[in-house]
Write a protein that binds this DNA or RNA. Structure first.
Length: 261
DNA sequence: AGGACGCCCTGTTCGC
DNA sequence: TGCGAACAGGGCGTCC
């Protein structure tokens, strides 16, 4: 479920491991993940280059090349990155492999090939071309309020719409709504000032705490719904059995007692 | 505009 | 026990 906190964790991981090393080889297995490029095109763009810095917008990770171009990674549902010393083995389901001259490799693995690998001129250019909304963590409260007031649908699909706000998916929208004590089906335009504020604050604290936990459920605060989002799960605040509902073809988990419509 | 639905994709879990 | 259906869900396209 790579959403904003997971992708931010990957971004920091790449920054801490894979920068400033010359790319000696690339290999693409999951060809269907490439958008707007080919295995050969990707190879030409990366070969002999180094990764200089990283950036992130919503669920997209950007890696700057010393040529001026950018590599763009999206992790779909199951994507992961692994940096390791080459020893003949590689992670299961490796779809894209970057080998460096120092014998280390960066592998993009994904059992379900639902992610995306692209090249871009710059993060802003890519964001504009994709029509992504502002990143959930850089969005200010005033803009958030304005976006919210102008919407007619319910809260959960609104939070998950990448064209409105980028970075929040099914899992974290549940967490944000839980912390804000709002039912996923609440009409966005119906929120009073206090509830709008609560939602904005919850969005921030949830994403920040999740990043702090390295996006690992077992390291999240005790008050989080996330690790209990499964059959038999109970509300961390009142112990009530969690309920589910459908929104946008996804399962929403919530506490029927703490999150009334 | 918003939302339901199908599709992609495949490992895991569920139900008969 | 075994096998197929359902599910997991990010993003996109289609339709109402």
């Amino acid at each position: 479920m790579p959403e904003l906190p997971d992708v931010e964790t990957f971004r920091r991981y790449v920054g801490a491991t894979a920068l400033h090393q010359r790319v000696s080889k690339t290999r693409v297995t999951g060809r269907s993940l490439l958008k707007g490029t080919t295995p050969a095109g990707l190879g030409r763009a990366l070969h002999g280059r180094t990764f200089e810095k990283t950036d992130r917008h919503g669920k997209y990770l950007f890696i700057a090349l010393d040529s001026g171009g950018w590599l763009v990674l999206h992790f779909g549902m199951t994507g992961e990155l692994h940096y390791y010393r080459h020893d003949g083995k590689e992670p299961d389901y490796t779809q894209f492999l970057v080998s460096f001259g120092n014998d280390y490799e960066l592998a993009y693995s994904a059992p379900r090939k639902l992610g995306r690998i692209s090249l871009a001129d710059s993060p802003p250019a890519f964001v504009a071309a994709q029509g992504l909304g502002p990143d959930a963590l850089t969005l200010d409260e005033k803009t958030f309020m304005a976006l919210l007031a102008g919407s007619r649908g319910s809260l959960k699909p609104w939070l998950m719409d990448q064209k409105k706000i980028a970075g929040i998916g099914n899992v974290y929208s549940d967490e944000i709504l839980f912390q804000a004590r709002l039912h996923p089906g609440t009409a966005a335009a119906r929120l009073d000032r206090a509830a709008q504020r609560r939602l904005f604050r919850a969005m921030h604290t949830v994403l920040e705490k999740a990043i702090k936990a390295g996006a690992q459920p077992e390291r999240m605060p005790r008050s989080f719904l996330l690790p209990r989002r499964e059959k038999g799960g109970r509300c961390p605040k009142c112990g009530t059995g969690l309920a589910t509902t459908r929104a946008g073809g996804r399962t929403a988990w919530y506490c029927p007692r703490c999150q009334k419509k």
